[in-house]
């Protein structure tokens, strides 16, 4: 559904995106995470045809991202919700439906359906008078008026309260279940982990990790061993009547076993934990 090859964007001497390549399949939710200035938004804008790449190419739904035809098959949600605030939700959505050449009856049904699903109240109130969460819902509804095959969402839950955020995330998952291909960026890694099928981690304009979460963990994460002893050792902490020592591999666990025996105790339990996406992100992005 989406093919990106060597996508690069330069602003003068500044390289915003340094040759990204990835692919997203139909019905997949693909997340792009990274710190501020990593190039996530620029990448999404190049996918949406808003920003012309300096080099490389993106093909979306069979069209080059720079083609006018591509835009008819895409639903784009920018990070902010730039609405025409003097319009009502309904007239705003109808205006965009007209631009997408959606027949009136179809548009009306689609708008009503989207607003119902998003549980949007105050549909006839001027958009300027709606809350931020309501505006975001209208913006999401707008991205759906043309029933696009591909949705590109930039920080869809940006600035929303937890309740609305969960709502938006569930809605995103629902869209994927309905066959939509969704690419979105987020700061909140919990959401990415929760919603995305695959993830790309960007930093300094480059994709430094990419794949499903298990793939990323295998490549960039680490297994941590928690050894529980009956006696206190150096660097151990008391946990539920035992003493926990955290080490990185099985050789170290053997060392713990030996040290416990020397101290007159014994090793009673070993547990393992995998790195979370956040830990991998912090590690890969170099900010941890």
């Amino acid at each position: 559904m989406i093919r990106v090859e060597g996508l690069r964007k330069e602003y003068g001497d500044f390289v915003a995106v340094a040759g990204s390549s990835f692919a997203v399949e139909t019905g997949e939710v693909f997340g792009i995470v990274g710190p501020n200035g990593a190039g996530k938004t620029t990448t999404l804008k190049m996918l949406a045809g808003l920003v012309e790449p300096t080099a490389g190419a993106a093909v979306v739904n069979g069209f080059a991202a720079t083609d006018d035809e591509m835009r008819a098959t895409l639903g784009f949600l920018p990070e902010e919700s730039p609405l025409y605030e003097e319009m009502t939700a309904h007239s705003y959505l109808q205006f965009f439906a007209d631009l997408y050449d959606v027949p009136r009856e179809v548009a009306t049904a689609r708008i009503t359906d989207a607003l119902d699903r998003l549980d949007l109240e105050h549909r006839d109130r001027a958009l300027g008078n709606l809350s931020k969460g309501m505006k975001r819902k209208v913006a999401i509804a707008r991205s759906l008026v043309n029933d696009p095959a591909v949705l590109v969402y930039d920080e869809p839950a940006s600035g929303l309260d937890p309740l609305t955020t969960n709502y938006v995330m569930e809605f995103t998952r629902e869209l994927a279940a309905r066959g939509k291909t969704v690419v979105f960026s987020a700061h909140n890694l919990y959401h990415v982990e929760d919603v995305c099928d695959r993830v790309a981690i960007m930093t300094d304009g480059e994709i430094v990790a990419r794949g499903t979460l298990p793939e990323i963990r295998e490549a960039h994460g680490e297994t941590t061993y928690h050894a529980y002893t009956t006696v206190e050792l150096e660097e151990s902490v008391a946990v539920n009547g035992h003493f926990e020592t955290v080490v990185g591999d099985m050789d170290a666990v053997d060392d713990v076993r030996r040290l416990a025996a020397d101290a007159g105790g014994e090793l009673v339990d070993i547990r393992t934990t995998e790195s979370s996406l956040e830990e991998i992100f912090l590690d890969v992005a170099g900010t941890g």
């Binding site: 808003l50 006018d68 835009r71 895409l74 784009f76 920018p78 730039p82 609405l83 631009l99 997408y100």
Partner: peptide, 14 residues
């Protein structure tokens, strides 16, 4: 202002 025209740019309107 506030990037209001951004969505027109991603619409099929040239």
């Amino acid at each position: 202002i506030d990037r209001r025209g951004e969505l027109l740019l991603v619409s099929p309107a040239s």
